[in-house]
Design a protein around this nucleic acid. Structure first.
Lengths: 224, 224
DNA sequence: CGGCCTGCTGGTACTAAGTATCGTTCATAT
DNA sequence: ATATGAACGATACTTAGTACCAGCAGGCCG
């Protein structure tokens, strides 16, 4: 949210003080003082003490929402992947800030909680999108929930890996891999259930016993 | 956490006041006064104002943890399902309280956030368990994360459905259905990747064109 | 019986986050 | 030059949460 110079100064002062004294040991007065402004001004720029270290979630949420809305039914998967990439890109752009925040969040429970809540907002967005997208299909709410949570989980897993590695490697390749993982999983559920439309490939080990073949068939039937 | 009579009185007073005046309009002093104790006593029984309406998450987490630890590698899936059922059962047992809390949480953002954080603690437990369980297999961290988030998402979806229906129908059948959904999905990823071990069944519509067959084969190959 | 320890309680004082409000300054437009 | 509106400083206030101390019951032992 460092839009205005004052906001930026406040954020820098906060990060510096949090690093020096710790989060709980730093008061809003301290932050404002170092930034050379009053306490009132701090709360004009940030709703709370926690807000000052978190990225502009509102703007980022809006971006994600816009990307999701700009999609038709047949490009939904692409939209989801793009949206997730947008989020990751936002962290990667300010790698310095992201890393500092990561280390801080790992130490302060209150900030950890705050981050979890923020992530839930993204998940909600994805869930609503998936809900509209799957509307009409069986078990739409459940699948929407699973899809949203999986997408977010994949993103988080990749992001945490990148942060733990101090932002060295490129995280977009792992993200694509993880997303493909998720998509594969869900395509498995999205398959047409009408037997007349079904196209299935089967191979058997030459040594397979008839029982093994029957088990495989039964398993596949149950999986539908 | 209504262990002692004082705790119970405090909880009842809090719920009553939250219902009458709203959450933000009720102070801890009000709650303590109605319960006939001092403010100090309130904070001795509940760490915070929010704590007073949430169930005994610590005890429940311990139960879940115990159930997960009491499992070997081949009963892991059963343990996870049992653990989730334990959580749902905890809500169903006090249906009255759960429903009141649900309605309240839906109105107060602070409580909503608190609940999200609580859910994350369960998810973390499942993730660690799945991480140990899958240790050694490829992409273990990613799969553990996906598995944990999916299990929790399934539970939440079923729980919310039950709450929205005012706790009328039995939620355990839907839960089992949802969990089977998740298990099916993940079994799909757990399949042995060694081609020599592969057993696959294939059927084609008689009218299928060669291109359709080729597409199906390519898709299945990519899905591995 | 009397002293002692322990656990629970009430009360007071304190810190700090967040809110509300008022007056001031300053820049820009008319 | 004056009006308007936005940003800031300052003050006062509410409330959550913490720290600390003093009283008060009941149990236990000599």
């Amino acid at each position: 949210m460092p839009r205005s110079p004052v906001s930026r100064r406040l954020a820098e002062a906060a990060v510096a003080l949090f690093g020096e004294r710790g989060y709980d040991e730093t008061t809003v007065d301290d932050i404002a003082a170092r930034a050379g402004v009053s306490r009132s001004t701090f709360f004009r720029h940030y709703r709370s003490k926690e807000d000052v270290i978190f990225p502009d979630h509102d703007a980022l949420l809006a971006k994600v929402d816009a990307r999701l809305r700009a999609s038709t039914a047949d490009t939904a998967i692409v939209a989801v992947c793009d949206a997730v990439r947008i989020v990751l890109a936002h962290y990667v752009e300010d790698a310095e800030v992201s890393l500092r925040r990561y280390r801080l969040v790992g130490q302060v429970p209150a900030l950890r909680d705050r981050e979890i809540v923020s992530v839930a907002r993204y998940q909600r967005l994805f869930r609503e999108f998936a809900g509209d997208w799957l509307a009409g299909s069986p078990d739409a709410p459940l699948r929407a929930e699973l899809m949203a949570s999986s997408v977010v989980a994949a993103h988080n897993q990749v992001l945490r890996g990148w942060l733990r590695a101090n932002g060295r490697h490129d995280p977009f390749a792992p993200l694509d891999r993880a997303l493909e993982y998720v998509i594969t999983t869900f395509r498995h559920l999205e398959k047409p259930r009408d037997a007349a439309e079904q196209v299935v490939v089967a191979t058997f080990a030459r040594s397979a016993s008839p029982d093994a073949v029957m088990d495989a068939i039964r398993t596949h039937l149950e999986e539908r």
